[in-house]
Design a protein around this nucleic acid. Structure first.
Lengths: 161, 161
DNA sequence: CGGCGAAATTACGACCGTGTGAGTGTGGAT
DNA sequence: ATCCACACTCACACGGTCGTAATTTCGCCG
């Protein structure tokens, strides 16, 4: 079926972003002004202006939310993203994000993971990114079906209605 | 019976404990007063008294220190220990401590771990306890050789390397 | 077609948890 | 009895969160 321009290009407002990612608006605001995640499409430009977040932004935010939920300090999250932002490429859907204290890696197989476990001295924080994307997508279609086409640009196995 | 300066049975003073575990004395003090880890052998009983930590206490403290170093919030650590304290039994040396947000488990094989990874939605924090014990032991013999016998009388998994 | 009211959003400031530092007094070992 | 290490009591710094006020934009009605 043909491509439609139904407003999906408009991106996500602050409020909707917070809803989708399941964080408070306060957190989103705080993270933006402290340079953790700034909206890619439109940054704030004075009081009353509106931030516009891209779909990719949502994924980053959801990763952060997951990290926080697991009890990781925001300071640590900042370090991870300083290093990871470049490497958070296309394969967001399949890899596992592994943090071992100060370093962060993307790992694809479970064997690699066990390898890290035996060598590593400290704690390993492991986050399957596939689940993150799924959660965000589900939340978008559930709350804002109009924007469903944004999530569809990644090939999926099963056919949908 | 001349009671000599054995020291081994006496446990570890506050200062030495902090040194061995590699935390500040202020942290040790703070954690004791806020009921995170209280000394098993002798708790504080007013100004001038002395806390006495057991070897097992050292292990707990080192686990906490590791968790903290990996960027986990103290609040989360408290939750983990509230649940884990009972289960932190004999096999301290070989198991892996796994935290998935609100629950904590001890896992022995890598396969179990991969299993958890596929089912789990959020972040898994994995800490190999063997490394913790090794670090504590090494630190004890290095700083206080007199107490080396304390580390030996705890059962270890046979044939580790 | 334009202005008004209300909702959405940014900006500001108070508050909480964690940890540190200095100062004091008390108990234990010599 | 004396000395020193340690526990205890404020006071505070700092990162992070949250409630609230100030400001802009948008929808609606005349």
């Amino acid at each position: 079926m043909g491509a439609h321009h139904t407003g999906s290009e408009a991106g996500f407002s602050g409020k909707r972003t917070a809803e989708i990612v399941d964080i408070t608006y306060r957190q989103l605001d705080y993270w933006a002004r402290t340079d953790l995640v700034r909206p890619s499409l439109a940054d704030a430009s004075g009081s009353g202006s509106r931030r516009q977040y891209s779909y990719r932004d949502l994924l980053e935010l959801k990763v952060i939310k997951s990290l926080l939920d697991s009890g990781i300090r925001l300071e640590q999250v900042r370090k991870v993203f300083a290093y990871m932002r470049n490497h958070l490429g296309e394969d967001v859907a399949s890899a596992n994000l592994v943090i071992d204290g100060s370093n962060s890696v993307l790992v694809n197989t479970g064997e690699e993971l066990i390898d890290l476990l035996q060598n590593g001295q400290g704690v390993l924080n492991v986050l399957p990114l596939a689940g993150v994307k799924d959660e965000v997508d589900a939340r978008i279609v559930s709350l804002y079906p109009d924007m469903a086409d944004v999530v569809a640009d990644v090939p999926r196995a099963a056919g949908d209605a």
